[in-house]
Structures are given as C-alpha cells and as structure tokens.
C-alpha cells in the first residue's frame, strides 16, 4: 500500500471554505524514460483521484504522466456537515487505495 498524507482541518464553521491537501507516494513512471539497461521503463501511474464528503463526490481529478512523482493535489470544499472525507487513488492497473479523514463542523 502506498503511503499517503492528508491534511483536512479538524474543525470548521458551517459554510466555510476549507483547503484540503493530499500527497501520495507513487513513482508516476511516465513510460517514456529509458532505463540503465537501455530498455524503456514501463508506464506506471495513478490515473484517478476522487474525494467524497459524506458519500457525495466533491472533487475528481484525472492524472496523466505529466504529474510529478508523489502526486500532490490541493483543492477546496465547503464544510457542510460533520463527517468523513474519503480519498481514493486508482492506478492504471485498477488498484485503489482509500484513506479517510474526519471533519467536525460547528
């Protein structure tokens, strides 16, 4: 399982726009590089990133090889209710990693 680092504010006021930061360990191998043996290094990238907030999708990204290794994505969401933000990263082979964070809305 690749390692991921997520930052979601622990608490927020209802209606407040909060910033979310995500970082996941992944080589994001482009498929265009030549290895030391002279053979191309096979493509290996994360293709999809989705964030849901209490089950509802609030942000989605499609990633291409031009995204740097260890993809870092930050975005915003409106704090609507206390609950769970779930983050999922799916690679080109279909393997998905999910991580969650809680937010308390006052």
């Amino acid at each position: 399982m690749p390692r991921a680092l997520i930052h979601v504010p622990a608490t927020a006021k209802k209606g407040e726009t909060v910033e979310i930061k995500t970082l996941i360990a992944h080589v994001m191998e482009t498929g265009y590089r030549i290895g030391v043996t002279g053979a191309p290094i096979p493509r290996d990238i994360i293709e999809d990133f989705v964030c849901t907030y209490n089950g509802e999708e609030v942000f989605r990204a499609k990633l291409y090889p031009a995204i740097a290794a260890n993809p870092y994505i930050t975005f915003f969401t409106t704090a609507t209710a206390s609950g769970t933000l779930a983050f999922s990263w799916t690679d080109q082979h279909g393997a998905t990693q999910v991580q969650t964070a809680e937010i308390k809305v006052e």
């Binding site: 726009t17 090889p65 031009a66 995204i67 993809p71 930050t74 975005f75």
Partner: peptide, 26 residues
C-alpha cells in the same frame, strides 16, 4: 511533453472556491 494532457479536474458548487494546485513535469 510526449502527451498533451496534464490533469483534468471536475468540481462543483460545493467546492466553494474554483481552484486547485498540483506539481507537474515540464
């Protein structure tokens, strides 16, 4: 870059702010 796409994001009114950041290869 060999491929023209870098990233495509989908968002909606719940975002609050239409902005995102990432790190790209050039």
């Amino acid at each position: 870059n060999p491929q023209p796409n870098v990233i495509s994001v989908k968002l909606g009114p719940r975002a609050g702010r239409a902005a995102f950041s990432t790190r790209i290869r050039l």
